[in-house]
Design a protein around this nucleic acid. Structure first.
Lengths: 132, 132
DNA sequence: CCTCCTTTTAGTAATTAATCCTAAAAGGAA
DNA sequence: TTCCTTTTAGGATTAATTACTAAAAGGAGG
């Protein structure tokens, strides 16, 4: 795990190793608060601020992807392109391979889906004009 | 406009009429704060709380749709199914008819799109089991 | 046009998420 | 080991949203 962080240009600290083991060992979707709660028993002096900074660094390094789902911000350990299903009652987030929802997404893997949101992001024509 | 609100089971108040004129007359994407800022000159005693409550009521009545775009919460006056493009620099949100982005969405209407997020929401299998 | 019940509103307080700031601590190359 | 740079903890700060409550207003029925 150390080598993986080093390969992405990140310094090694106990805090970062803990975050990496939690976030990168298997596919998860966790909010910064959830990460903080899960790690504070192991690192009692840990600060929430450190979690925010660490997740930002991991995102910039390409190790994590920040996603906005149902009004919450969570970090996803799978960075390749895929969709998500989100339960509006319990908040569960599940990965969906892009191919699984090409048509008629009203029932997906035993979910009852009643809404789909698709957002494309980038630069609008005006900002492109201004800054290339 | 009054009749439209009444048809949706909503009581008429000056605050609601002001919100309705701002949000329902033409297609807009506004956050609660933006709605509040735009109306407080007309209704000096207006409270932000009222905006939140009113937008909630309008959403429940089917007059508005709440969308989460780029980490922000905005209300969309178009309730039929469509996608959005969001500029990560200036925050502009543009409607996209669903048909316009079926394939190769990397360039849409002179935007430079570099990310797509698709979220399906509803009830997960566990919650379905529990509550039908 | 009254009356009365229910809903809505304003205002304040409380919560929550996220960022800013600074000094101390730690990483790691030479 | 030394020294420079990055990272961390902690508190302060900002912003978004919800909770609470008493007062005000809507509107149905007389």
């Amino acid at each position: 795990m150390e080598t993986r962080l080093r390969e992405h240009g990140l310094r090694i600290t106990p805090q970062r190793l803990a975050v990496a083991e939690l976030m990168l060992a298997e596919p998860v979707h966790l909010s910064p608060q959830q990460v903080y709660e899960q790690l504070r028993s192991r690192l009692p002096s840990l600060s929430p601020n450190t979690i925010y900074l660490t997740l930002d660094h991991f995102e910039k390094a390409g190790l994590l992807r920040r996603i906005h789902v149902g009004g919450r911000t969570v970090f996803d350990s799978r960075t390749e392109r895929h969709d998500h299903a989100c339960c509006r009652r319990c908040g569960l987030i599940q990965d969906l391979p892009a191919s699984s929802v090409e048509h008629a997404p009203l029932t997906i893997r035993r979910w009852r889906i009643d809404a789909e949101s698709r957002v494309f992001s980038g630069l609008c024509p005006a900002c492109l004009e201004r800054e290339g």
